[in-house]
């Protein structure tokens, strides 16, 4: 039963990433693209976790945690660059 649920989860999350990619290419404003990348990172975290359940290993949690940190920091750095013209003042 978990296999079927996992297949559905992979399908839904892949579709979600495709929708994010559509928003990333379409825009129209700069912040739309930043938001699209931010959401894509979150969907990728969910994909990594589901992959960990499928492979029955906990190795991938570190990757998911790194993705979470990297996505947050890149979003905040980009927004700060737009707001202040500098990342670290």
């Amino acid at each position: 039963m978990i296999e079927y649920a996992l297949n559905f989860g992979f399908f839904a999350l892949s579709l979600a990433v495709l929708l994010n990619l559509w928003r990333l290419f379409r825009g129209p404003s700069l912040m739309d693209r930043v938001l699209a990348v931010d959401t894509m990172v979150i969907n990728t975290i969910a994909l990594i976790i589901l992959f960990g359940i499928q492979q029955r290993t906990t190795v991938f949690f570190e990757a998911a945690l790194l993705f979470a940190m990297f996505g947050f920091i890149s979003t905040v750095a980009y927004c700060r660059f737009i707001l202040r013209g500098d990342v670290i003042e």
């Binding site: 039963m1 978990i2 079927y4 649920a5 996992l6 559905f8 989860g9 992979f10 399908f11 839904a12 999350l13 579709l15 979600a16 990433v17 929708l19 994010n20 559509w22 928003r23 404003s29 912040m31 739309d32 938001l35 699209a36 959401t39 979150i42 969907n43 969910a46 589901l50 359940i53």
Partner: peptide, 25 residues
Amino acid sequence: VSVLIVLGGLFALIGSFGMVKLPDL
């Protein structure tokens, strides 16, 4: 576990669909 996986996938899909569908940022 199966219900939680399906719910999580559905919510992620709905969130991304809303990001495509809604009118402005």
